[in-house]
Amino acid sequence: MFMIWKSILKRKTTWVLVVIIPILFGLVIYPTIKDTVSQVSVPITVVDQTDQEITDELLNEIDEEPFQVSRMDTLDLRLLSTGEAEAIFVFNDNMEANILSGQTDEIITWYRTENSYVDGLFKEKLASALMSRVVRAEAASVVTQYKPEADWEEVYEYGLRYFEPRPIFEMKFEHISGVEDRSATVDESGDHLLFILLWLYISMLIGYFTQFLYEWRADGVLERLQMVQRSGRFYLTWLIGVFGITYSIFLMATQLMEIPVVKWAYLIPFGTVLIYFIFFEIVKKKWTMYAWMISYSVASFVIFLLADWKIIESDWMYLFIPTWLLV
């Protein structure tokens, strides 16, 4: 029975699909997706009702990779629940004046949710940018108080040389709770995109192997096998081979991409192979089967992403096999 696999493996297409494509994926597509995902991963919203100059200054100073900062002039907390903002920082009016006079209470309000993880880093950067200004202002004030002839501006510019920075301001921390749970964290949603691509690939691969069953049925090979022996063993050989290949790829890929696979998720390749096999049994025409399976795969892709974003949360979504990852 190994012969049927010999026949399959003798085809170049098989090697392209099973070996070349995963390698290409690993070398080209995977790093690209990983990068893009981490680049756009932390959306931060800054609200400044009076559009102050100091806001520009501060934001320019902390304009760095993982954050995607958008500026608004009104506070909209819904952004937190929809996930459009990981956190919202509200810059109060007269911020510059407050900083220069050493008035550091409540100059910024910080809104976040239970699911905000990396916004703390943004807070740190913002804090250090603010702190250097506060420290220099205080230094200048102290110096000019005792040495009236000193130039305030000059001392302010060089203030950092005389004073060790210390945490002298605190931000008011306001925790917004009761916000919809977005368990898709920054890293995970990127992994999930990779996962659904992996599943689409596996699904296509199984479709390719199913094509042989159709071919052999059309050629009469299956009938012939039925004559000399039960075709059961033939199907078993096919199934074992397909399970072997899909599970190897699935387990290796999820390991490499560090996608956590738990309980039900282990059944994903199994379920996908089974669905193709059932289709083979009930759908007589190859192209009809492909039409169904392409529709199913596309639907699964969409449903998986919607389920991942918690837009769909009903049980029927588990009809679409990749969602088993989310159980």
Partner: peptide, 21 residues
């Protein structure tokens, strides 16, 4: 119809079916 595996040799066919029976 010719119910044969396109890319297997004559020898492989006979060996395969011989094993089957």
């Amino acid at each position: 119809q010719l119910a044969l595996f396109e890319n297997l040799t004559v020898k492989e066919h006979l060996r395969f079916y011989q094993k089957m029976i």
